[in-house]
Each structure stands twice: as C-alpha cells, then as structure tokens.
Design a binder for these strands. Sequence first.
DNA 1: ACGGGTGATGAATCGCCTT
DNA 2: CAAGGCGATTCATCACCCG
Lengths: 390, 390
Amino acid sequence: MSSARVGAIRSQSQLKVTSTGSSSFRSPHAPRNSVLLGDNVPLMAGLPAESVDLVFADPPYNLQLANALTRPDQSRVDAVDDDWDKFADFSAYDSFTRDWLAAARRVMKPNATIFVIGSYHNIFRVGAMMQDLGFWILNDIVWRKTNPMPNFRGRRFTNAHETLIWAARDSSCRSYTFHYEALKAGNEDCQMRSDWLLPICTGGERLKDAAGRKTHPTQKPEALLARVMLAASNPGDLVLDPFFGSGTTGAVAKRLGRDYLGLERDPAYAAAARERIAAIEPLPDEAIAAAPTKRSAPRIAFASLVESGLVAAGAMLTDLHGRHRAMVRPDGALALGQIVGSIHKIGALAQGLPACNGWTFWHFESGGGALAPIDDLRTIARASLAAAAE
Amino acid sequence: MSSARVGAIRSQSQLKVTSTGSSSFRSPHAPRNSVLLGDNVPLMAGLPAESVDLVFADPPYNLQLANALTRPDQSRVDAVDDDWDKFADFSAYDSFTRDWLAAARRVMKPNATIFVIGSYHNIFRVGAMMQDLGFWILNDIVWRKTNPMPNFRGRRFTNAHETLIWAARDSSCRSYTFHYEALKAGNEDCQMRSDWLLPICTGGERLKDAAGRKTHPTQKPEALLARVMLAASNPGDLVLDPFFGSGTTGAVAKRLGRDYLGLERDPAYAAAARERIAAIEPLPDEAIAAAPTKRSAPRIAFASLVESGLVAAGAMLTDLHGRHRAMVRPDGALALGQIVGSIHKIGALAQGLPACNGWTFWHFESGGGALAPIDDLRTIARASLAAAAE
DNA sequence: ACGGGTGATGAATCGCCTT
DNA sequence: CAAGGCGATTCATCACCCG
C-alpha cells in the first residue's frame, strides 16, 4: 500500500463519533482513528460488514479470586476486581463471549484475522467458542513475561505467561496478511516462533493518574501490540479493538501507520486513551513501508530471459552438483534428452520428485567455471524491468 | 511418606490385570503398576472411586490435516493420521472428552490433581470442558520445545509449544501435592514458572521397531513427565494415565518410585510399553525421598523453645533494626508493653500490619551482639526433635 | 578417535493464480 | 469452479559415512 493512500485514509476519518450504545449510525465505511463509547456489540452491529483488516481483543478475563490476595509482607495485591470482570457463571461468560465474537466476525474482511488474548481463566472458553463460531485458528501464541508477578502463596507455578489465539475468519481464508519474511529477518534469520518473550507494561509506559494510581488494571505493553500489527497488518489497515481500555492498540496503530477503531464502555478509559493517542508521533513512512517480499515480486517468464539474451538458446544448465544437464530451447523450455518442459517440470523430473523450483535448482556457468543459479539472472531481469518503469 | 510404605505398596501390586474393556473387575484398591487393555472409560468405571493420586492424560489432539505436507526439499512429513485421532466433528470430540474426563474425575482422590496436554487444535475444548465438569484449574503450563518442527510453508508462526492444564478435582481442594520448595531449589532458587523449556523426544529415548520406524507417533519426553511427577506427586503415589501409548508415564513413575496404572486401547502400544517399563531401573530411595519442606516440617510452638531453655523467659526480642522490643513470657507469649500475644500477633501489632511471621520478624542477640532470627532457634529445636526420634 | 558432510525427521489444522 | 501450473518454503538434533 502506498503512503499516499495511507494519508488519504487518515484524513477522511477524524470524525470522533460518539455513540451511547445503540446502533445509531450507519455508514458505508467504518470510522477510523476514533474511540466509540458504548457496548461493543451494538457498536459493531452498526459498522458495515467486512470493513476491518485486523481485530485485537483483550476481553475481561473472568478472574476468580475468592479472597483478597496479599504478598508475604501483607501488602494487598491490587487485583482485578472491577465490575466489568464479574460474571455470574461460566454460562454468562460464554454468552458474553459468543456475542462479541460473532459481532467482530461480521465486520472482519474475508481475509482479516483476529488476535484474542487471555489467561487460563478464560482462554479455553474463548478458544472453544471461536472454533464453534467458525473461526479457523492459525496459531496459539504464548506471551512469556520477563517479569511476571510471583505466586505469593507458593502453591502453584508462577503464572508467567498469557495466551493469544490468532485466527482467520474461516478455514477457507488463505491469503491473510502475514509478514513472514520481515519477522524472520528481525529474528536472526530464524522463523518467528509461537512463544514471545516480552516484559509486562511498567514504568513510563504505564498510564497513571495524578495520584499515581494506574489508569487501567490490565494495560498491555506496546511491544506486544507492535508485534501483532507488524506480523498481521499493513500500513493503512484498519485495526479494530472492541475492548479498547487504555488504548494501547490505538497508540501502536498510530505509531505504525495503521488506522484504529476503539470501542470502550467506560468514558474515563476512553478519555485516557484519546489523550494518550494524541501524544503519539507516527513513525516516518519509510520506517513503516512494507518490505518487498519474494512472493510479491513481479513474475518473470524464463522465456523472457532467453528473448533478452540473458540466457542463450542452446546453453546447457546443470544442477549444483553437475549431476543433471538440460539444454535451453529458444522458446524458453528445457530439454532433458527427448523430454521437453518448463524449468520446474524438468527439474522435478530429473530428481524424480513431485515438484521443483527450477529457478534455484538449475545453474549456469558464470565467470571462471563457477556455477550460479538462474535465479540470479531473474534478479537482473527484474532490476532492468524496474529501471524501465521509472 | 517413608520408604517402608513405598515398598509395601509396590509389593502388593504386581497383578498385571488385563481387561478387554468391559468393567469386568472390582476391587477395593486400584491395580498398580499394570497396563490395562481396553477403552479407558469402562476401565476407569471399574476402578474404585477416589483411588488415584495423580492423573496424566495425553488424549488425541484431533488434528485436521487437509493435505499432505512436504519439506522444502520435497520430502514428505510423516504426519499423525492414525485412526485414533479421527473425529467426525467438534461435537464428537467434545463428547469423547467429556466421557473420559468425567470418568477420570471420579477415580481421583479428593486432593488429587490432573495434567492434560494438548495443542491449539484441542486444548481449548478440553479446558472448557474441564471447567464445566467442575475441575479447578491451578495453572496452564507451556511446554516450549527447543527443537520444534518448523513451519515449512512460511505461512504461520513456528508451532513451538504445547499446553498442559493442571487442575484440582474441584475448587475446594486446597491440600493438593505441590513441591514448591523442591522445584524452587532446583531452579536456581527461583519459583518454577509456567513455561518449561524441554526438547522433544528423539534419539535413543524414542521407541522404534526393528525396522527403525517410530513405535508411537506422539511419544512424550521423559523429562516432561518427570517434572510433572516431581511437582505434583509423592513416592508411592498412584499415577493414572488413561492414554498410556508408549508408556512414558509408567517408565518415569517406576524410575521415580511412583506407582502407575496405564490404560491403553491398542495391544501393540501396550506391549511396547510393558517391555519398555520392564527395563527401567528405579532410582534409589534416598534420591527419591521427598525433601522436607517448611510446610511439612513438624510445627514447633514458641513455648516449647522457652520450656527447653533455648529462649530464656524474660529475654528481650527485637526486630532486625531494633525499632521494636518485646519480652518473652514464660508461657511462650510475648509482651509489648501491656499487650500480650503470640510472636505473630505482637509482631503484626508492632508494625501496624494485619499479619506477621514472628519467626522471621523477631530476633535475639546471638554471640558478639549480632542479631539472629528466632527461626534459627526453631531449626535447632527441630534438629534435636529429629535426633530424639531416632 | 575426531571432525565434517550428508541425510533423516519431528502432534502441522502450512498457496495462489490462470485457464 | 475444478484442475493444473508456477514457484515459494525449514530448525534443531541425531545417525551415519568417510577421511
């Protein structure tokens, strides 16, 4: 997506709609870069279907602390005991979960994905409900906390992680956004794993009121949201957060050039989030622009390399070890003895395999008798194509 | 538990009952150190209620493989496609899960706990069902694999972990076994966290047939089972595994001086497991004996220290900084001015806190004017108590 | 014996476009 | 819409062979 488009979307969308919970507005486009006040289910019902690119949801965890929790020094742990985290029983929590998940699914574009974060108190119910509603789980991801709260009673393992579920809208969604190569490049050239080690949100990042009390009990670290958005969204995408809280999703979205839409029931949280996001400075477009990937590179026919003279008709190609030899035909096909076919087909045939990437399998003799893959020639062809387009 | 008791339990239990799946046997005690052949639900129905100390369950994951998967070198991945992992739909899997979980819950002693392992394909359904059946989740634990299979198509995060759910039979179970201090001592004096880093089962540990094929497609590493049993069972305890498979639970139980009961449907798996376990050499009792913990150490009344002369009546105790001073009364109470109470109550009162551990708060003057906690005197008292019991 | 190279393998819901 | 072609894609570990 070009930065021009990003700008256009941003400018159209500073409407700051405020709703009281009824489906009081309808528009062909979802509002962008706003915090909508009210219950998220009717608010989502008021959004156009298939209008958001990514959902991040941090629903109430349904924590069940029977009694007050104290540290060994008898100081009281400031546990989550807000009204929004109280449910009569599992059935009430399931019903709540079904409602918001179904509403979120409706507004997801066909190739959108959703992340939901939770702990063992609620994540199993959330995950089962997602499967029941037709979501297609892509991964579960473990956020390993570098600095979790210890288990003060010494009766359990330190609860040192939370779980995220990443899912597509349904099982047929195959072209969801996933920046595999960028993540790998940023991870020592190793695939990004399903376990992420990140600190919890503390220090200057943690929102506090004038008296020093934390604004929101479960503020998520921006690094977590950043990894989510960098992995599964593009600049200019609309990220919906139906449990906006302190607005971490909005803050990170703005910084990373994504658009956000936050839904929040509590006016105080919404106000704190708006203030927080207003202070965010977006990163420059160059820092955000999606890196070109091999999958997105323009397709080049091997025939065009022959036509342009990068490969001579009649030249012999071999595999890296010189075990197989094939001749380049003027029409861009390869000939292995009497058999003629594409670079891929002939490569597969030569090895007795069902498939083969001919670009990396076949080599030509470059300077000094060294062998180089014909993929190098494709790179040259792509460069001259790009130069011609300037 | 003494090693004598461990020996007694072991000798009673080498019956090796074999059942074909009907509830054909009844006994006041569950059989021990046996593999029972048949469906686990009727087999568990035939066991006495409240007869096992720990359950470890590795149920089918309900993997849903659409197509064959190949590595980048076109080699075929040997996926799990066994009949026992085929379910018509989520509803069939839920029903299967409910049945075996309910049967397992019935045979758990009131303070028994259960570990269930799974992946994102099934663990959410399992966890929700456990909550519905009344299990009380204590932790979810993440087994982080050091050497997971990569994601060959680059379309998702590397699926690098599996999840274990640890639960008590119900929310009222408070005295379940958990060797907090032994785990902490073995973890650089740091609380054991909910994320465990362990390699998958390969190499010599992996059972293979004469042709070199793996005996079981999903054999779990012994290190994983060892951590489970060391954390949540005592020597001589009965560990039930309703999905015994290749018998890792039995092998580790035997090595660690626990008794096992394995339920397995497939005669070939059961036979392989029996052979495997027969070759296991148990560790010596000294290596296994539960380390004494503070909780299990005999309670010592402060009064008994006064009686034995370790503390003199009339002696003054202070906190570490000398801010508070209290006098030892001959009845083992403390006096802070006119107020009299236990070492704990007076310690709390002195600090204005709701509670206080008097053993670590109050200090006495040991040799050379140095202050030492009265807990040191308790340690001495315990040592002489143990010596007297010899 | 040791080291390097090659090959095998593990609970996996693992494409997209054109015709 | 189904079928077929293009062409993109792997990490840690262990076993084995060879020099």
